[in-house]
């Protein structure tokens, strides 16, 4: 996925110009290739982060939940039945797997699965109580635009949650990042993704940030809207 990385780096360098469709196409192509083995290859290492984020969603008030980058729907069975979940993703192949999961597990609280660009959502303002984006922020071409859209579709007083790998500022985590680098590239992440790429300084100061095992490789960030 060096091509995807390349195009995203170019796009980020040019922020805030609109990205070319090539970026979305490259990300979509990566996930089309990975859809079949995503759960086996990545489901394990990301499981704790996913569980923590869903547990936090379940504890927060409000029933209307948006999962941005729902993928194959790995998180969907873990939401409380009282949470009404809508999931979006850019990859039709991943969504097809999510739909199969919803049918097989009879997840009656999943209101819908939609193919959508997280940076230009087809939802009105203030329609959700909670939006959660797991392993998404470092994949989208313009993370700040993702944040702006999540802010828009969540009501004031609602909650935004992110689980992501953020670059280690210091310490011995580099070897884990190095070990995961091939998978990271394939999934369109980049190991040098810094919190500042997503958050304005005032957001970063307000966000509740907690490390997630294994090895604190992932971070759960909770930002009140």
């Amino acid at each position: 996925m060096s091509q995807a990385l390349q195009s995203r780096r170019t796009a980020r360098g040019q922020d805030p110009t609109p990205r070319s469709s090539l970026d979305a196409d490259a990300v979509r192509a990566a996930y089309r290739r990975w859809a079949g083995i995503y759960d086996a290859a990545f489901g394990g290492v990301s499981a704790i982060g996913r569980r923590r984020a869903v547990a936090m969603v379940n504890r927060l008030p409000g029933a209307r939940v948006l999962e941005v980058g729902v993928g194959t729907g790995l998180a969907l069975p873990h939401y409380l039945p009282s949470k009404r979940v809508t999931g979006i993703d850019l990859s039709a192949e991943m969504l097809a797997r999510a739909r199969t999961r919803v049918q097989q597990r009879r997840l009656a609280n999943v209101d819908g699965l939609l193919e959508m660009d997280a940076e230009a959502m087809a939802f009105p303002d203030d329609g959700f109580d909670i939006a959660v984006a797991m392993f998404v922020a470092s994949v989208v071409p313009h993370p700040r635009q993702l944040l702006a859209e999540m802010r828009r579709v969540v009501r004031p007083g609602g909650h935004l949650l992110f689980v992501n790998h953020f670059a280690a500022e210091a310490g011995p985590r580099w070897w884990i990042e190095w070990a995961l680098a091939p998978a990271s590239r394939a999934l369109g992440w980049h190991p040098d993704f810094a919190p500042a790429a997503l958050f304005e300084p005032e957001d970063q100061a307000r966000a509740e940030i907690s490390p997630v095992p294994p090895f604190g490789l992932f971070t759960l960030a909770h930002l009140p809207n």
């Binding site: 809508t86 209101d111 819908g112 230009a120 087809a122 939802f123 009105p124």
Partner: peptide, 18 residues
């Protein structure tokens, strides 16, 4: 499409009704 979904969707470009 599920009718419940229709109620929460707008055009991603114009944010107008569908």
């Amino acid at each position: 499409i599920d009718p419940r979904l229709l109620e929460i969707l707008v055009c991603p470009l114009t944010k107008g009704p569908l």
